[in-house]
């Protein structure tokens, strides 16, 4: 469906994107403000960036979060690929409906429930809470996310490619590594990126499953946000927004290059 852009469509697009971008724009602009207030402009300064980069607690929380995100998304894409292949390629097996439900439900389940239930599991099993319990919690959510992303790629590709490999005498292992894996690899990459972003962003599940000494960046951010606005948070937010923007631009560029080559 396509056609002329009428004035009403142009207006809704303009207002819509302004709504999405203005708050972030204001946030970014005031991170460069010299004064303490984040609503009154007093002059250009980079002092809040210097403060953020000297805040050791913040940096430690950020490093924690990156490690948790990298570990949990790597585990999640491996397990998620297994789950996606199971759901799309294995046909019926005992418990398939239950399995599909367990993959689907975490994606929409309110995080307060997921967080609380995992915490109670760790307490019941007498597991010390900390870095690894957050990794497990995030892997669980990201497994579901990765499985759905990879499954949608598997559904849309031509199964006869795998059958052709079998017919030409390839073993099931060779078919998997030489046909199936290359086909799902773009989905695996985007599943990893999505999982990483989710893990970097999650406050609620991390807050429930964290222990002493395993504070993550969102938890740190949350406790400072509760104290009110401050230019330091604006500076930190601007850094994080730039990282996401850069990531999206790289992903879009890679995608564009691939489309051009094929």
């Amino acid at each position: 469906m396509h056609g002329k852009t009428s004035w009403i469509n142009a207006t809704s697009l303009t207002l819509g994107f302004a709504f999405f971008y203005l708050p972030l724009l204001i946030l970014v602009v005031f991170s460069f403000n010299d004064g303490r207030l984040v609503t009154v402009w007093t002059g250009f300064s980079l002092r809040w960036y210097a403060e953020v980069l000297q805040n050791d607690e913040m940096l430690e929380a950020a490093w924690n979060t990156v490690r948790i995100a990298a570990l949990s998304s790597t585990m999640a894409v491996i397990l998620g690929s297994f789950a996606a292949i199971t759901l799309v390629r294995m046909g019926r097996f005992w418990g398939r409906t239950l399995f599909a439900g367990m993959i689907f439900a975490p994606l929409v389940m309110p995080v307060v429930i997921t967080g609380l239930s995992l915490l109670l599991l760790f307490v019941a099993l007498d597991i010390q809470r900390g870095f690894w319990t957050i990794v497990i919690a995030h892997t669980t959510f990201n497994l579901a996310l990765s499985a759905v992303v990879i499954a949608s790629r598997l559904v849309s590709f031509d199964r006869s490619l795998e059958e052709a490999a079998y017919d030409l005498g390839a073993s099931s292992f060779a078919t998997f590594t030489q046909v199936t894996l290359p086909i799902i690899s773009p989905a695996v990459v985007s599943a990893w990126l999505l999982s990483f972003t989710y893990s970097m962003d999650d406050l609620v599940i991390a807050a429930f499953t964290a222990g002493p000494g395993s504070t993550t960046l969102p938890m740190k951010l949350y406790s400072s946000v509760r104290l009110g606005v401050s230019p330091e948070i604006n500076a930190l937010s601007t850094i994080l927004i730039s990282v996401v923007a850069l990531g999206i631009c790289i992903a879009a560029y890679v995608d564009f290059r691939r489309d051009k080559n094929t």
Partner: peptide, 12 residues
């Protein structure tokens, strides 16, 4: 972009 940041942006 981080959920917390997007909500925080609205406080100001």
């Amino acid at each position: 972009t981080s959920f917390l940041i997007r909500i925080y942006a609205w406080i100001g």
